[in-house]
C-alpha cells in the first residue's frame, strides 16, 4: 500500500498536502482501491465554503456512491477540472489527482490530521 510520508491523512481516507498557502485534498490509494473503477466525480465550486468533516464532493465507482469529506474548514480556491473529465485518473494516480485546493480558515486543525504512520495503522485495522 502506497502511503507517502510527506502527506497528511484523515480517517475517511483523504490525503492532504500543504503547498504555500493552499491545502490540496484527494483520496488515498486505499480509498480508490476499495471503491473500484471511479467513473464520476462531483466537486464544489471555487468560492464555496467547506466545513471540516462535512462532505464536499462525491466520488462514484461503477457500483457505489461515496462522499468525500473536507479535512479542514476553509474556502475553495481551485478545483481540478481535469479529473472531472478523466475520473479514472484517480485509480491510476490517486496522489497526483488532487480534487480541490482550499485556503484554510483555521490551520490549528492541521495538527489533528493523521501522519502516514498513523494512517497506515488505520488501514491495517480496517482490512
Amino acid at each position: 500500500m502506497n502511503i507517502p510520508k510527506d502527506l497528511k491523512y484523515t480517517k475517511d481516507h483523504e490525503w492532504i498536502r500543504k503547498e504555500e498557502d493552499l491545502i490540496y485534498v484527494g483520496i488515498t490509494e486505499y480509498a480508490q482501491n476499495s471503491m473500484g473503477d471511479v467513473v464520476f466525480i462531483e466537486l464544489p465550486e471555487v468560492g464555496d465554503t467547506v466545513v471540516k468533516g462535512d462532505a464536499f464532493g462525491v466520488v462514484e465507482s461503477v457500483k457505489a456512491v461515496s462522499d468525500i469529506y473536507a479535512p479542514l474548514s476553509g474556502t475553495v480556491k481551485k478545483i481540478n477540472e481535469k479529473i472531472l473529465d478523466y475520473p479514472e485518473k484517480v485509480n491510476k494516480d490517486p496522489y497526483g489527482s488532487w480534487m480541490m485546493a482550499i485556503e484554510s480558515s483555521d490551520l490549528s486543525q492541521w495538527d489533528i490530521l493523521l501522519d502516514a504512520e498513523a494512517y497506515e495503522k488505520l488501514c491495517e485495522e480496517e482490512d
Binding site: G36, D37, V39, S61, K63
Partner: peptide, 20 residues
C-alpha cells in the same frame, strides 16, 4: 475478489475491476 452479500449469498462483485 471483493465479496458481497447478495440475497444471502456471499458472491464476488469483482476480481480485477468491473470495467475490465
Amino acid at each position: 475478489s471483493k465479496m458481497i452479500d447478495f440475497g444471502d449469498w456471499m458472491l464476488p462483485v469483482q476480481y480485477f475491476g468491473i470495467v475490465d
